[in-house]
Design a protein around this nucleic acid. Structure first.
Lengths: 387, 387
DNA sequence: ACGAGAAACTTCAGTTGCTTAAGAATGTTA
DNA sequence: TAACATTCTTAAGCAACTGAAGTTTCTCGT
């Protein structure tokens, strides 16, 4: 744990300035002063330090009636981060620059997660490969973000500890939805005052919630269990032990199971119930592709799922008073054309009638790989506050 | 990993010290240092300032092996706040000390809220009466909290502006649930690291959510709309324009309507469907009283409502990773004996099986008047951070 | 082409709020 | 009564930020 263990500071000038530039680059110093609420003097000093460190660069002038503004941007190459996404069947690695842009990517079949020793050895080797492949100096790397579909702790936490010990880099472990939310916040340039919920569909459904520029993690790091929002009091039994959870009624696993049980839908999607199953993600994507191509039964399955998802989304929006929903993850990447409109439809009436808000539903730009880039963004985000 | 580095320290010494004393008084300076993470020197200086201002007093010693600890408490009388609760049919005023204890109380029939001029005149006169009745100097008052069952803005905000102009005090306007949550945080000595949801039943259902010692308000001050969490996808139409909202299925208005529609239940509760209705709160309390006395039909109505409330509560707990629920407001004051166990039952299985948490459900000490004392607590809370 | 004006940025001398280090106060115990 | 344990205070220093007063670098009008 090298310089991640730096002492924290109350959300200071550095953090505020970097966050403002991230969200709305390019910016001049005067603009930064008004945005951050700092004095121009403070901004000037802070920016000089950032320039010295090479984190920020001046690029271009903006003419005014007087002295032109000198525009500041993040230098994409100045600092980089590694994101690792341990999916069911694939492990994805990305190397991103400071602005969240992907410099290099690597996908590998997933090693057996049951054996932590081999797992960490494999990940280490792959990360090594990622660096040599991209031809980037390891010194500029800020750390590694590790994401897997599940709560942080256990296997992932263990891997994190091993990686950190072996590489000397700080390693952050997070669940897929939260990572995707942070990634969205980072690369989609969401402002700190804009709260949003990133709904993530992979092999399950989760939500990453970002309020006031900070991801909600909850007491045990389990916040955002969107899949276990109850949408039907006496609904079917869920794996979690409760009843009527969104995931049990409308999660990707349920949709795939329904498609397999319906010969017509299975045929539409090209799924053979007899064959051994591929991953939930792949099967769900097949259903979504079929629906998009016009297959009615697959479409109906998705629409049915979307009704539930929309209801749960509405609950979240009402509970937290949020007006932005981002659909992300491989599931929504494939099926947002159904889920997006469904959420909009569900929310529209009460929005106008009661809440006087207008909810926006967007699809993440790189929804399919949001977890991996989000993992890297976690590292970038955590470095805003330190040093 | 670098979890320690991410922890923000935005709150200043004064706020942290006061908050620690509030949550766990009496405390010595050394204890404060360890709790707040400040150095002993910093605590010493901060405490001296607070002693000078009379906000904190030394009271008693705690023997040690060396020099005894000098215990610090908030001086209850040093600063006071006024809470105003504009209910449907009654306006309640309380005067509280710094520790949240009620110094004086006043209840009045509600004036017509449609006429802001008369309303504010009435409230002003009543507040005046409150002070003279309690024999307290107006100078020590920090401000007025105004609460009503609805979103801040409109009538309430207007009243706030008028009050503030007339009295010179800061006036804070908040919805009932959030105020009750802040009141609970303040009076029940909840620690800042303990997140919780205060479920509030009055004429409707809402939730006040407190995380990291701060009440969630959301983008438009509408956060905590627990009553519009969806618990049934195609449930009945709700006033808000959506379907299947908790409030439409299980809110106090719905319970009362069901009791009136069922001759047996109505008789049990002593409600005459022919008579003009009193307030929802009063009618609901009548149903709850009957149920408590053993009336089976009223009991069944409440149990049915509680099933839905429990499901919605579970959604909130899972979404925010919270393990404390406080039931408050007149509705739960009367009927927590049904709702509390229902929530516990619903949550227990998944808690053990999946989340490894153990949720606590408590009933607010002064649930019936939580809004008014909460209104006053809002003022106290807001004065923690300011100088 | 050149001075006036405008706006962006910088410098500098506080102020604040904390830290570290040392010391004073105030009890217990041998 | 001296030694000790512990709490609290004081003093010096540091880093971040503010306010006010420059300095720079452009445009514009003449």
């Amino acid at each position: 744990m090298s310089d991640a263990a730096v002492r924290p500071r109350r959300r200071g000038a550095r953090e505020r300035v970097l966050d403002a530039i991230r969200a709305a680059e390019p910016l001049s110093r005067v603009e930064l002063a008004t945005i951050t609420g700092l004095t121009e003097a403070a901004v000037s000093m802070t920016v000089r330090r950032l320039l010295d460190e090479g984190i920020v660069v001046e690029s271009g002038l903006a003419p005014t009636a007087g002295k032109p503004r000198r525009l500041l941007r993040l230098d994409p190459a100045a600092r980089i981060a590694v994101g690792v996404y341990l999916d069911e069947d694939t492990t994805t690695y990305v190397l991103t620059g400071q602005t969240g842009g992907v410099l290099s990517r690597l996908a590998r079949p997933a090693p057996d997660p049951a054996d932590p020793e081999t797992l960490s050895r494999q990940v280490l080797a792959d990360v090594e490969l990622l660096f040599t492949g991209a031809g980037v100096e390891r010194e500029r790397c800020l750390g590694v973000g590790v994401v897997w579909p599940g709560p942080p702790g256990g296997t992932a936490q263990d891997l994190g500890t091993r990686l950190s010990a072996a590489t000397g880099w700080p390693v952050l472990v997070e669940n897929d939805a939260t990572a995707a939310a942070v990634g969205e916040y980072w690369v989609a340039r969401v402002g700190p005052e804009q709260g949003f919920a990133a709904l993530y569909m992979g092999s399950g459904i989760g939500a990453g919630i970002v309020l006031e520029g900070r991801a909600m993690r909850g007491g045990r790091g389990n916040a955002g269990e969107f899949g276990h929002v109850c949408v039907q009091v006496d609904g079917p039994q869920c794996q979690c032990g409760s009843r009527g959870c969104l995931e049990a009624l409308a999660g990707p696993r349920t949709v795939v199971a329904a498609a397999l049980a319906d010969p017509v839908a299975a045929a539409e999607a090209g799924l053979d119930p007899g064959e051994p199953r591929r991953s939930v993600v792949a099967d769900f994507a097949a259903v979504a592709r079929a629906a998009r191509a016009g297959a009615p039964r697959c479409r109906a399955l998705l629409e049915d799922s979307a009704r539930y998802v929309a209801a749960a989304a509405e609950s979240v929006l009402n509970l937290l008073d949020i007006d932005l929903v981002v659909l992300t993850g491989p599931g929504f990447a494939a099926a947002s054309f159904v889920y997006g409109p469904a959420i909009m439809r569900r929310v529209a009436v009460a929005d106008r009638l009661t809440w006087q808000r207008s909810v926006t539903v967007t699809v993440s730009l790189a929804a399919a790989t949001a977890s991996a880039t989000g993992a890297a963004a976690l590292v970038l985000q955590s470095h805003l506050s330190s040093r």
